[in-house]
Write a protein that binds this DNA or RNA. Sequence first.
DNA 1: GCCACTTAGTCCACACTGTTGCTTTACTGG
DNA 2: CCAGTAAAGCAACAGTGTGGACTAAGTGGC
Lengths: 355, 355
Amino acid sequence: MANLTALRDHNTAAVLGRIRAADEISRVELALATGLTAQAVSKIVQRLAAEGLIAPSGLTPSTGGKPRTLLRLVPQARWVVGAQLHRHGSTLLLVDLAGRIADATTTRFDPAGATPRQTLDLLAAQVEALIAELPRDRVLGVGVACPGPLDQHTGVLHQVTGLPGWDGIPLRAELSARLGLPVLLDKDTTAGVLSRPGAADRAFVYLGDGLGAGLVLGGRVQRGARTNAGEFGHQVLDPRGPRCACGNNGCLEALCRAALADGDVGRTAELLGEGVANLVRLLDLAQVVLGGDAVLADPEVFRGRVSAVVRERLPDPGWQEVGIEISDAGEHVVALGAAGLVLGTVFGEGAALEG
Amino acid sequence: MANLTALRDHNTAAVLGRIRAADEISRVELALATGLTAQAVSKIVQRLAAEGLIAPSGLTPSTGGKPRTLLRLVPQARWVVGAQLHRHGSTLLLVDLAGRIADATTTRFDPAGATPRQTLDLLAAQVEALIAELPRDRVLGVGVACPGPLDQHTGVLHQVTGLPGWDGIPLRAELSARLGLPVLLDKDTTAGVLSRPGAADRAFVYLGDGLGAGLVLGGRVQRGARTNAGEFGHQVLDPRGPRCACGNNGCLEALCRAALADGDVGRTAELLGEGVANLVRLLDLAQVVLGGDAVLADPEVFRGRVSAVVRERLPDPGWQEVGIEISDAGEHVVALGAAGLVLGTVFGEGAALEG
DNA sequence: GCCACTTAGTCCACACTGTTGCTTTACTGG
DNA sequence: CCAGTAAAGCAACAGTGTGGACTAAGTGGC
């Protein structure tokens, strides 16, 4: 489906996305980057400025004619809430358009102990508390990230690991009804890849409770046929390796867990590097961001070892350059990524909003 | 970039794609499937009929009112040429809109022996011979598939395996200049995934000279940051396994090759199944098509064993159903897929045509 | 200090998209 | 024969990006 409205939204998102990526940019450069005419950019910029989303922020030195007017995002023109729900509790963030965290709530509880209804009520109350001071129409929506499997499209949870009793709960609809705001649901790892803007072909690799990956390919979040892509940890790396909960032997996740239990962080990082190298080769990625508790405990070890293994494994490392980075959002990556789910609808890297 | 022309082309391709997928379909169903209004569908259908691409093919039984008019592709309204270039020769196919092969040329030669210029001249002559009887404006273009690495975007070859001296040759531009037709270049495995329409999330796994994969994710061909995605064969499956040409030990490709050399087809298929299971889990695929010499020699063994391993490895095979199929195009898969590169521009699954 | 020149950005008429409301066409069933 | 129903076309329209002319705001030569 595509009509004139969709066309406009698409181009508007493309312009906004460029402004965010460039921090500060002129109309002329926007036209060049998006392929739109100067005229179209002018109209779009005018509309965005009227809505308060962007504002002029200076002039370039003249090159012999009228100087270019630089444009900048007005970060606090709109807000989104990002929530991470896991088996030990929840993290909620209030995030502005620039992806900066303005406020945070971390709660430790046992969702397995409470009924889903109670937990939903609690979540809704926490969101309300975060946005209490803000005009309602300045809040774009709420993103929620959970462990999978779940159905991103309908917003329904399946047998979420560590959360029995949540199977079949229509989290998105329930929360949206309570709040009167658009809600998006996604897997924690998929959310993680949206915690910051990045390369058009990139992955977020998360070594926490489990081992998963979020994928952006060709500038689009990839969720797969049943919106459960990213099961990265159960690739068999050594058939003689330790048994994994998934039923196989020598899964990457089981190997990493075993190495971590031995206290051998370097070995863990190298194993992870093997998996990342496989991923990069298969999908020809330009950037891999690492996150999760284990990585945050020894960030430099992971960055160094994973980079080294990837460089060694790729056939032509000079040509296929890959940025290996540690997420700068720390323990907030997933919740920030959940916010990114909603921001993606504005900047053109995610799905369309409903509700 | 997106303007009104792009919008129209997008919607036109969506409509044509549905007609191809359904074989026979009414305007009403098209409107439902594409999300366009009945009016928009009518206009698009009218234009397509005027161009001769589709034609009415019958009526549905009435449900109390005017019966729906069924529409069908006119397969021979346009033609494309698909070419596979490998180190032992070339295969060229003349293909209609329905993806049916009307004519074929297979040549065995040694591209490594001839200069690139000579080989290009030969290819151009072979294309001319295939389309000699057809009005030039009925030929949409030529798709060429080669082993990688190459730059799909610019149409330039890199150090193609088995073809020394081709590094840096701008194959697309050269061939396009000789023929006066649009030319698209892509990796053989990426082409293969386009040999037939299929699920929005699918892979083509090719076990021939090497072991590679072509990916369609979210309805789009995925080529990666440097258009060389699909390196599927060099994931390490057993660190104590045999040495591979890529420098690592126990690559899937090396393991498969070793099993094949032992004459153990069943074992080869099971190893391939492990790789396919990893792929399906990572990308949440709905369909995997197998092809290549080794697979074609024992298709049923591969279909059976790979299916069995995938079913065994997936956490919930009932929910995550995956179709494992053997390509019905046989030895022509890659050349047919090369034709599919061009057809994809018409039916909306590929890149835009230029030149 | 003036003025030709250059570059950025806007105004306006326009072509073309899909949409909305209404009409025509074509069949069913009493 | 005619009321009812569903499909498809017609005509007016809103809104998109475009192209050409025009205005705004600088630089640099004399």
